[in-house]
Nucleic acid binder design. Sequence first.
DNA 1: TTGTAAGCGTTATCAG
DNA 2: CTGATAACGCTTACAA
Lengths: 324, 324
Amino acid sequence: MHEVAELAGVSRMTVSRALNHPEKVKEKVRQRVFDAVSQLGYVHNHLARSLSSSKSNVIGLVLPSLENSIFSATVKAISDVLRPAGFQLMLAESSDDPKDEEIVISNFLAQRVAGLVLHSTRHSPAAIRMLRGANVPVVENGDMPVDPIDMVVSYSNRAAAKAMTLHLARMGYSKIGFASLANPRATERQLGYLDALAEAGLAPDPRRIVNVSRGFGGGAEAIAHIEHVAPDTDALFCAGDVLAVGALLECNRRGWAVPGRLAIASFDDLDLLRHVNPAITALRLPRAEIGRRSAEMLLARIFEREIPVQSVDLGFEIVQRASS
Amino acid sequence: MHEVAELAGVSRMTVSRALNHPEKVKEKVRQRVFDAVSQLGYVHNHLARSLSSSKSNVIGLVLPSLENSIFSATVKAISDVLRPAGFQLMLAESSDDPKDEEIVISNFLAQRVAGLVLHSTRHSPAAIRMLRGANVPVVENGDMPVDPIDMVVSYSNRAAAKAMTLHLARMGYSKIGFASLANPRATERQLGYLDALAEAGLAPDPRRIVNVSRGFGGGAEAIAHIEHVAPDTDALFCAGDVLAVGALLECNRRGWAVPGRLAIASFDDLDLLRHVNPAITALRLPRAEIGRRSAEMLLARIFEREIPVQSVDLGFEIVQRASS
DNA sequence: TTGTAAGCGTTATCAG
DNA sequence: CTGATAACGCTTACAA
């Protein structure tokens, strides 16, 4: 920057201003500075800038898993809002483990991120303490938390699962099964499923609830479980889209009619669900909208604009298709 | 850090040492420092650390698209190598546009990233100049580049596509079509497809080459194209896994026998390909290995260790399944 | 509109 | 093994 200043015949301060607030520098000087910058191939040092101004332009995002395609819509949406504002995205994985999340958060705070998006609502006490102490804007994403740290943009897993189960019940299915996964969001969904059974006056039957592994294979596991343990199950609600597709493909393989032999419904609506045969009934969740709103709320807070609400429940939508 | 030093009764320098090189500080002092740190809830400032030491602990990753699930295996693998080494991952999207990539790279350089992974091999001249000038370790990923910037970990799109096409030819298919996408990797794959036709003595037929849109819908578009423009096509090689699944599902919908009416093969091997009916023949690419090796090479360079090779071609594998 | 001086929070360097 | 001092490259606050 020193060299740029010399070449442009101004002080370093003027270079800084030309770079950060071009409008505060006379047109002619600004041009000289920009010319010098490109002539010297000067690259601004954001580290020094952030340190000096105590304003960072990095946002941290913590995802339960980097392998899950479900989150890519959220990531993309966040990134799309951040880029034009000149912010960068830092990514890390919590593996749904509060201890791992705590480490990741502490690293992000050490990087002095300007804001944080956490795709989870379960945090270690230490993590919560750090976040509150750091006075950094935080958006939580994965569910509607009971005791939010700061801002929230999400939907309720429990309410959504309940709505879908009730939908199946209203369509006449009375022996509804649930294929679950080992993560806190799936656990909430299972509670919603049970809520709905109670409300619909259907007796819950533990034989119809099965925990399976992630991925398409999990869906096949669920079908095998139904066949052996509760063959009279007439509908299967899957805690994840990939599971639902796996289950459907397994039914196709076995020649089970869907929905004749078994109806299938999915939590979350991947594009794929519309393309399989039959297309799968699903909960459409506003993944992209969640990312967009999260980033916008963060930026609003960073620029000290008013934010209308601290907590946004974006809801969900049931998409009825041929599989139920 | 000042307060930590006071509470521990040492100088700031000793705190810094206790944090960064614990072994260089007497056990007793170290303990006092750590106690003070947790008592005060002190969070190390990596910005200042990086500025002062001119060593950053952030790696930048540029992906063509944040929405493509194909890349998640690479991201995950990179992250898994980086975390234990204390490095963070910064993410950005190039949209396969060299101009966008240039902006993203310049932002990363402004953040003083310690290294860069570029999932692309086409860069703007300005970007190349910046990278060379910055003297930052770079790994290129999406293909084997003709003129690498620095290090390379990849496979050859052209060679892989050629191998798969030859494989189909050897199986007896003689009217092989190609469903392509509008990105540089798909373009290379198309060249490989043409290479193979030439080598197999099959005449290339432009009617059998179709550019489709991304996603499952693109696969259906390809099938529609074949039906109307080149109905005697006996095998379809898809430039992407999602395309291949879309094509297969569309065949199922139309009642086309696969591979009887049309064989299908995929570039890239998603888990899903094994679960559809019939399972789809695919090229298995070492996505995770690419991420792992890329991160390892970057770290080796950063720590000034010897790297055995600058450029690694990890190859590919043909997985023959029921669809061909 | 531009410049001067001080400092952001850390670490490199060298002395003790 | 520990401490004093001077950077690191920029911006804030104020002065001209």
